[in-house]
Simulated scan of single mutants.
Amino acid sequence: MKKLTTLIIAALLGSGIVWADEEATQSTQDTKKSQNVQESTDTFQPYVKKNKKSQNVSGVYVGVDLGLTGSTTTMRPSPFYELKKDGLALGGFGDVKVGYKHYFTEKFAVRGYVSLGAGLRYTAIQIIGWRIAETYNHTTTALGLGIGADAVYNLSSNVGVFAGFGVDRHSWTHSVSSTGSSTGSETEGSTVIPKLQLGLIFSGFEIAAVYHTATVQPANSYLDYGNDIALKVGYTYTFFTL
Score class of each variant (00 low, 15 high):
Ala11Arg: 15
Gln126Asn: 07
Gly70Asn: 06
Lys107Tyr: 08
Glu39Cys: 11
Ser157Glu: 15
Val64Gly: 08
Glu186Asp: 12
Gln45Ser: 15
Ile17Leu: 14
Tyr113Val: 11
Ile17Ala: 05
Leu116Phe: 13
His170Asn: 01
Thr135Arg: 00
Thr123Ile: 09
Ser185Gln: 14
Ala20Tyr: 05
Ala11Asn: 14
Thr141Tyr: 12
Ser115Gly: 07
Phe108Ala: 00
Gly184Asn: 10
Ala142His: 12
Leu90Ile: 08
Asp228Lys: 15
Val18Asn: 11
Gly92Lys: 15
Tyr235Ile: 12
Asp30Pro: 04
Thr215Arg: 10
Gln126Cys: 04
Ile127Gly: 01
Gly180Asn: 02
His174Lys: 01
Val176Pro: 00
Asp21Cys: 08
Phe240Asn: 12
Leu200Ile: 04
Leu13Cys: 06
Thr25Gln: 14
Val192Ile: 06
Val98His: 00
Thr69Ser: 13
Ser58Pro: 14
Tyr81Met: 13
Thr6Gln: 15
Ser156Asp: 06
Gly180Ile: 00
Tyr103Ser: 06
Ala133Thr: 01
Ile201Thr: 06
Lys2His: 13
Gly204Leu: 07
Asn36Gly: 06
Asn154Lys: 09
Pro218Phe: 03
Val64Ala: 12
Leu198Gly: 14
Arg121Tyr: 01
Ile132Ala: 09
Ile125His: 00
Ile128Val: 01
Thr41Met: 15
Gly204Gln: 11
Gly129Ala: 12
Tyr225Arg: 13
Ala151Cys: 04
Leu83Val: 02
Glu39Lys: 15
Thr72Cys: 03
Ala214Tyr: 07
Leu4Pro: 12
Gly16His: 06
Gly144Val: 04
Thr43Leu: 12
Tyr103Phe: 14
Gln26Asp: 12
Phe205Gln: 00
Thr215Ser: 13
Glu23Cys: 08
Ser78Ile: 01
Leu242Ser: 15
Thr141Pro: 02
Gly129Ser: 04
Lys2Met: 10
Ala118Tyr: 05
Glu188Leu: 13
Thr25Glu: 14
Gly63Thr: 08
Leu116Cys: 07
Ile125Met: 00
Thr105Trp: 15
Ile8Asn: 10
Leu200Gly: 04
Phe240Ile: 12
Glu22Pro: 02
Tyr61Ile: 01
Glu134Gln: 00
Trp130Ser: 03
Pro218Met: 08
Pro194Thr: 05
Gly166Cys: 04
Lys49Trp: 05
Lys3Pro: 08
Pro218Ala: 09
Gly94Ser: 11
Asp86Phe: 10
Ala163Asp: 01
Asp95Leu: 14
Arg169Trp: 13
Ile127Arg: 05
Ala11Gln: 11
Ala118Lys: 11
Ser221Gln: 04
Glu134Leu: 00
His174Gln: 02
Leu7Cys: 05
Lys52Ala: 12
Val48Ile: 09
Ala214Gln: 02
Gln197Glu: 05
Gly91Asn: 08
Leu7Val: 02
Ser115Val: 00
Gly92Met: 12
Ala133Gln: 06
Asn154Trp: 07
Gly160Gln: 10
Thr238Ser: 14
Phe108Asp: 12
Val216Met: 06
Gly184Ser: 04
Ala219Thr: 02
Lys52Thr: 04
Leu12Ile: 07
Asn154His: 07
Glu22Gln: 13
Ala118Pro: 07
Tyr225Gly: 03
Asp168Lys: 04
Ile8Arg: 04
Ala149Arg: 07
Leu196Ile: 12
Ser58Cys: 07
Ser181Ala: 09
